[in-house]
Nucleic acid binder design. Structure first.
Lengths: 124, 124, 124, 124
DNA sequence: GTGGTCTAGACCACG
DNA sequence: GTGGTCTAGACCACC
């Protein structure tokens, strides 16, 4: 699902979803991705937008494209994935800690809030 | 310190810095802010960029400006601060949870990582 | 129609007109607003002036803008509209009461004058 | 009492207060106004600001100044006062009616609200 | 001196 | 095409 109202560009949202599918295993190395036109139709966005997302992911080394054969997921490097995820988690937690410091909230509050957020994300 | 290369607009960076100073108590209600021209000169940005930041903050109700008198920090109400901090914490934790889901990491890992980040922020 | 001689800033006049159109229903949620450049040309003002008006309205939560897609009216919530209208009415009536006090006119005079004004606005 | 935070310029606030005093009879024709320096001290504003207020009122024909004799209230023209007050009342009521129309509120609501505002202004 | 407004014109990101 | 950002420079009102 894409948000037309979010500040995040559409092509970034598409990239995030494909990345997430790859990293969670919903898409495995060798799997074929939907064609540009198919995905553009399904997501109700312009062909240009999907093209940009695929190009970016190809530049990242996550997917590969062959003339007339469509795009496929490339083998992922476990180390790559781990550092990618770790960096994102640490950055996010650092943000949370800074905000807590401003509000004078302690570590316990963060742990508790983390439980709440975890549960609510789980149900979505 | 402003980053000319960051994706974040200059005026947003200025707003963030002033907001942080107010919320942390470095700037207290009633304190005078640097004049538009003074800050523009110090930060090496255009007068208009600083003006925009001050205007936005005034619209938020965080600061007040009067022609010929300069700009001052307005009294903050506790409710405002609390909701501001809560929103920031929840957004950040939500990011962390999403990243953990991609990496297949569990809630325990997040709690542990939170401890690490908390300690490292503490020592800065 | 904008007044170049009024004390009210051009961008505030633009904001007022769009706000009025939204609140009266001339513009409904989902409707597209004219593009920045189009409105600037039509109103004979600078692009920046229109941009500022749109930005302010977006900060108010009344409209939303996306790069490359234009600007649209966002859904309004009833509570927001009610408080907006109430505040405007109270401010205006307070002005009238103050003026009446200066002229030594009583409450009955205001009620009578209110009838007259109501009728004359009605016929416009 | 002057509001340092209001958007209304200080000298306009001073003018309003003197006008109100004249129109309500607290200051009668022939009465001496406080000297520029005295009023500036009392109101905690600069001499320039008070001077501007007095000059504007003199230009309006409401007060007169004589070298070394201070300023005095001039005879007021009853017709002048009446039209001045009427215009202000009508403008304010028209604003209120417009706002009510937007909110779909009827004439009865305005009459009721007028009562409330009248009472609350009375107690101040 | 201060902030408020408006201008013209540029470059970038997005679809 | 769209909106977002930033610039330099001007004039005004206020104190």
């Amino acid at each position: 699902m894409l948000s037309q109202t979010s500040q995040v560009p559409l092509y970034e949202q598409i990239k995030d979803q494909i990345r997430a599918a790859v990293y969670t295993g919903d898409l495995k190395p060798g799997d074929a991705l939907p064609s540009l036109r198919e995905l553009a139709r399904d997501l109700q966005v312009s062909l240009i937008t999907v093209t940009r997302a695929y190009n970016d992911l190809a530049a990242e080394g996550l997917i590969g494209s062959r003339q007339g054969k469509g795009s496929v997921v490339l083998p992922i490097d476990a180390e790559r994935l781990r550092s990618h995820v770790s960096a994102r988690i640490d950055a996010a937690l650092s943000e949370a800690v800074k905000a807590a410091a401003i509000g004078g909230l302690g570590l316990e509050h963060l742990h508790a809030q983390l439980e709440h957020v975890w549960d609510s994300e789980d149900t979505n």
